[in-house]
Design a protein around this nucleic acid. Structure first.
Length: 1075
RNA sequence: GCGCGGUUAGCUCAGUGGUAGAGCAUUUGCUUCACACGCAAGGGGUCGCAGGUUCAAACCCUGCACCGCGCACCA
């Protein structure tokens, strides 16, 4: 530290050292290293993102862990990167292009051109956050920076998709999905947040067609969907309405339609709650999940009235057509009013699902999407439940477990351009199927039904009546035993398609008697599935015969699950592609089957659905041949993020990095993405690496402002971390955030925290400056015989601090660690030790001065290292400036504090050699307590701090002269007279301490008022003492207490009583001395 | 509705059965030769409420209230 400025100036230090670290390649992880590995992957921030306080919190923790691990001698990989963030990025770029006037809509450019623009934007403006992380001091291995759209990474994503497809875990289906009318894409359930919305419940009446003059009143929050209503439902048990079931009502909208086209049936459905509203429910199968189910049960038509963009379509009628859905709501109410149908409207609050990103209400919408049935679920669930993977704080394990226990299939397709395009190809040449379907026949047994409900009932009846449940059946062709579990039936019924429902109950029968079975080589097994066998069968639908391909999964205990099958509908009599009748020949080696459709489709919809798509479907990365077109959708961004821990390490080719650093040690992330990311990474880790992706997960709190509100742009309450760094320094920001971030709690952010960090850095700086001002080289050897009680005290305190901080870090208690460091350094080292050393430095004993410097150097060199993970910049500056680097080997702190060893607690040999007995904590502690008391006396006497005064000490035991000198200095006294026979004159203030009585003779200097005030104060204190004595005495007087209390506690109570009694005596004496 | 957290000084929070704590804020006094981004000394709490267990409860149990979060939801 050649130039010593009075205050620490981070700006002149931080960039210099960061560049130094980069130049030295200190962040680069060596996969060949012999050191034990420590690894952590960054939660990839959005490539469009800018640094927020949330990132600061998160990445500071990771940096602390990484830097600490380096100091522990580990080979550290902190792997950084960014996420392509499909919706967010596409929106940002789209908005930017619109602003520049380049486009009005993304369609103006077309997919290719638009993607070019996105890449351009990404390369020019993306990744700002990476530069910002550097400002924060993040010690990431930037040579390994990854982006989820990197070619290698994209290939991993595609590979995984194809693999899951082949395992039968990915399927396509037409389902009700969460549709975002702003982003024009489907969303997963996790991307929908429920929000309370204030609105109205509208009551309108409809006439029963068969009984003129009879009206039903319906309550709804969505009158704009009336044109899409295809029934009115009541509970069949509701006495008010049951008799009306089967009759019809006249739907009021659209106004212009003739009455006969607006007749919709009154149906009975148990789903209807007759407590709610009027007990009459309008059913809009196209725009409500529950209504869709009702529609499926009652074979209702599905009339879509809201288009993908949230505007009403033609079917909504002339009045609503083209209007936004919310505007349409108002107009619909007006129309109802005009018709005289509106009875009333009352304010109503309900929960509405919002798109998390676009912050608009989502629209349930029937559409064709890709779904994933999660892999490796049981293992992933068990590893956390059993505590093999630890969550910190562990209450998140319960949340995780709950979610894992009720997994819904993941909608992975997005109708966007920016992202990984789904690696599925469709061939042309599909011939349309006839839509005439009368019944379904499974050879030998009929399971007839026109919709799922009927089929399901038939299937259950069939399974029951044939005693199939729990039975084993021998397949005569393959000689395999097939057992039907109840679970497999339920599973199939609840999760899979119509075809599955048809097949499962009949399957053993098919295998036994009728089906012409072929087998295929099994597909790549996962750990929980030994093999997947493929069979073909025939299915007759009306006059057509279809080939059906289905799959049987074989589990380790020989349990067989018919949980996925691909249905291939084929017209038997014509269109045989090559005339080859063998079923195998119909299905090329690659996956060509088309998975079953959604569970709630009508059969005719299934056929329609199949017709609407190309026949041949293959999932593979490269196009199979010419004339094959790729699925236009891209994958959910999280479908790439969930591979992050291993895809970033070069999976599957580069084995060395993976071998060294996978599984990673820690993951640091926010609890808000526990389902989005953490849970999915665990499942992917098991599925593809056969091992958990990380050993520990640390969940940070969420940063809020000091009023407890979430940080948000619109509130303007999110300070820019870069501004804070510029104003206070990166170390200050890190320290401030860490101090305010207890494990598992939300963090209420206040700039004062950062200010405190800045002040702390300044304190550290000045403490070192003080050391430098005493001169001399770095002192190595400490001479045990020259150690004062102060020296021993601070060494013991250092020892305690090392232990405390190390334990806190091991337990991920960062705020405890910073609090311990703060307390030790400021409250113990600076406040007491440094002040005490002035007695040495202001004196003339040169040997003692040198020895004190040695102690200071010992303490500071340890302290600076302990601070390094928290305050990387200032500690590096001090490490070099103070000369502590010079004595160290190059790879252990000689070059950089980054590799200096983490301080070890002082061992017994060390303590023995230097005479560091715990009694010195008491001895020096008593001394400092005496000083506090003495200062208190001065204050009571109203004597200003600067004024030199005289104290008298009547010691209990001998006190070394050096200690008396320390006391004198700390009291800022002219003299401290040691006098065993001191008789205090009247008006002398006294304090009782462990070391003896301390007096502040005032020699009549005080006014009567001052004396009176003093007397009042002592009297007050006496009262408190009496109260304490009474409390303890009462306890001791209780016979039950004396009988049952453990001896140690009794001892403690008696001792406490004795202390209070002595204090009382002293206070009484003091009172006497004052009067 | 179900579940999980929380309720301790003005604020933010520690505190796993035996004397209620820290930081900030506040009051007062100090430009004391490392630091005013500082030093020193104070004031300030029925530990959410009500029961129970115990010699002893902020702490364990039960119930309630309020706040926050998650999940599931009735139009």
């Amino acid at each position: 530290m050649s130039e010593i400025s009075k205050a620490y100036e981070p700006q002149s230090v931080e960039d210099k050292w960061y560049q130094f670290w980069l130049d030295g390649k200190f962040f680069v992880a060596d996969a060949q290293s012999a050191k034990p590995a420590y690894s952590i992957v960054i939660p990839p921030p959005n490539v469009t993102g800018v640094l927020t306080l949330g990132h600061v919190l998160n990445n500071t923790i990771q940096d602390i862990l990484a830097r600490k691990a380096r100091m522990d001698g580990k080979e550290v990989l902190w792997l950084p990167g960014t996420d392509h963030a499909g919706i967010a990025t596409q929106t940002v770029v789209e908005r930017a292009l619109k602003k520049e006037g380049k486009i009005k809509h993304r369609d103006d450019l077309g997919r290719e051109k638009f993607l070019e623009e996105v890449w351009k934007w990404k390369n020019e403006k993306g990744g700002i956050i990476i530069q910002q992380l550097k400002k924060l001091g993040a010690s990431c291995d930037w040579t390994r920076e990854r982006f989820t759209m990197d070619p290698e990474y994209s290939r991993c994503v595609q590979r995984v998709f194809v693999d899951l497809y082949k395992k039968g875990l990915i399927y396509r289906g037409k389902r009700m999905v969460n549709w975002c009318p702003a982003s024009l894409t489907a969303l997963s359930d996790e991307e929908v947040v429920m929000k309370e919305q204030k609105g109205f419940l509208y009551y309108f009446k409809v006439e029963v067609a068969e009984i003129p003059g009879t009206f039903l009143t319906i309550a709804t929050t969505r009158p704009e969907t009336i044109p899409g209503d295809t029934a009115v439902a009541v509970n069949p048990k509701d006495p008010r309405y049951a008799h009306l079931i089967g009759k019809h009502v006249v739907r009021p909208l659209p106004v212009e339609l003739p009455r006969e086209q607006k007749l919709i049936p009154i149906i009975g459905d148990e789903h209807v709650d007759f407590e709610f509203g009027t007990g009459v429910l309008k059913v809009t199968p196209a725009h409500d999940k529950a209504d869709f189910e009702i529609g499926a049960r009652h074979k209702l038509a599905t009339v879509e009235v809201i288009a993908a963009n949230g505007q009403m379509n033609d079917a909504a009628g002339a009045d609503l057509r083209g209007l936004d859905r919310f505007k349409a709501r108002k107009v619909a109410v007006e129309k109802l009013t005009e018709l005289g149908a509106l009875e009333k409207e009352e304010p109503y609050t309900n929960n509405v699902g919002f798109s998390e990103r676009a912050d608009v209400p989502i629209e349930p919408r029937l559409s064709e999407q890709w779904f994933l049935k999660y892999p490796s679920v049981e293992k992933s669930r068990a590893v956390v439940a059993k505590g093999e993977m630890k969550f910190h704080p562990d209450r998140w394990a319960k949340v995780y477990d709950h979610w894992m226990g009720s997994l819904q299939d993941w909608c992975v397709s997005r109708q966007l351009w920016w992202g990984h395009r789904i690696p599925v190809w469709y061939s042309e040449g599909w011939k349309k199927l006839s839509q005439k379907i009368v019944f379904v026949r499974l050879t030998g047994h009929e399971l007839a039904g026109r919709n799922v409900k009927e089929l399901r009932e038939a299937a259950f009846t069939f399974a029951k009546s044939h005693g199939i449940l729990g039975q084993s059946f021998l397949n005569l062709d393959s000689h395999q035993n097939i057992t039907v579990h109840k679970a497999s039936l339920e599973h199939a019924f609840s999760n899979f398609g119509v075809a599955n429902v048809k097949l499962v109950p009949g399957l053993p029968d098919l295998l036994r008697h009728a089906v012409k079975v072929a087998s295929e080589p099994h597909l790549p097994p996962s750990e929980s599935v030994i093999s997947v066998e493929t069979y073909f069968s025939a299915l007759q639908v009306g006059d057509q015969i279809f080939r059906v391909k289905f799959r049987v999964k074989v589990f380790p205990d020989n349990f067989r699950l018919y949980d996925h099958q691909a249905v291939m509908l084929w017209r038997e009599k014509e269109n045989e592609p090559d005339g080859n009748k063998s079923p195998e020949a119909q299905f090329p080696k690659e996956q060509t089957s088309r998975p079953a459709s959604g569970s709630t489709l009508l059969l005719r919809d299934l056929v329609q659905d199949v017709n609407s798509d190309p026949a041949f479907t293959r999932s593979q990365i490269e196009p199979p041949a010419e004339n094959w077109v790729q699925d236009p959708d891209v994958l959910d961004t999280w479908f790439s993020s969930w591979l992050w821990p291993f895809a970033t390490m070069g999976w599957p080719e580069q084995a060395d990095t993976l071998k060294k650093f996978y599984p990673t040690t820690d993951l640091v992330t926010g609890p808000d993405i526990i389902f989005f990311w953490v849970a999915r990474m665990i499942m992917a880790g098991y599925e593809y690496m056969g091992a958990l992706p990380f050993q520990n997960v640390y969940f940070t709190g969420i940063i809020r402002d000091k009023q407890g509100r979430k940080m948000s742009k619109s509130l303007g309450n999110s300070p820019d971390p870069l501004d804070l760094i510029a104003k206070f320094g990166a170390d200050a920001l890190r320290f401030g955030v860490m101090r305010a971030a207890p494990l598992g709690q939300d963090i209420l952010f206040d700039e004062q925290n950062v200010e405190l960090g800045r002040n702390f850095c300044n304190k550290l700086w000045n403490a070192c400056r003080f050391r430098q001002m005493q001169g001399g080289e770095v002192q190595g050897e400490i001479e045990p015989t020259l150690l004062s009680s102060d020296d021993k005290w601070i060494l013991l305190k250092l020892d305690a601090a090392i232990r405390e901080v190390t334990i806190a870090l091991n337990e991920y208690k960062f705020s405890d660690a910073t609090a311990a460091l703060y307390r030790f350094f400021w409250g113990e080292y600076c406040d007491w030790y440094v002040e005490a050393t002035k007695a040495v430095f202001f004196g003339t004993d040169e040997k003692r001065k040198a020895n004190t410097l040695a102690v200071i150097d010992f303490v500071l060199s340890h302290t600076v290292r302990m601070f390094h993970p928290f305050l990387p910049f200032i500690t590096e500056e001090l490490w070099h400036g103070m000369g502590y680097a010079t004595d160290m080997p190059d790879n252990q702190g000689g070059k950089t504090i980054m590799f200096a060893p983490w301080p070890m607690p002082l061992d017994e040999d060390f303590k023995g050699h230097y005479g560091l007995d715990d009694c010195y904590l008491e001895i020096a502690g008593a001394k400092y307590e005496l000083v506090s008391q003495g200062r208190n006396l001065r204050r009571e006497a109203n004597i200003s701090t600067g004024k030199k005064i005289k104290y008298v000490l009547k010691p209990v035991n001998f006190l070394p002269p050096h200690d008396v000198e320390v006391i004198r200095l700390l009291l800022n006294a002219e003299t401290v007279e040691v006098n065993e026979n001191f008789q205090p004159p009247k008006g002398t203030l006294t304090a009782r301490t462990e070391l003896g009585e301390l007096y502040l003779p005032l020699e009549g200097l005080r006014t009567p008022e001052e004396l009176a005030a003093e007397k009042a104060r002592v009297a007050n204190e006496l009262d408190k003492i009496e109260a304490e004595i009474a409390k303890v005495e009462q306890k001791l007087a209780n016979p039950k207490f004396m009988e049952k209390v453990p001896p140690a506690v009794l001892q403690e109570h008696s001792q406490r009583l004795a202390e209070w009694l002595a204090k009382r005596d002293h206070a009484k004496a003091a009172l006497g001395a004052l009067s």
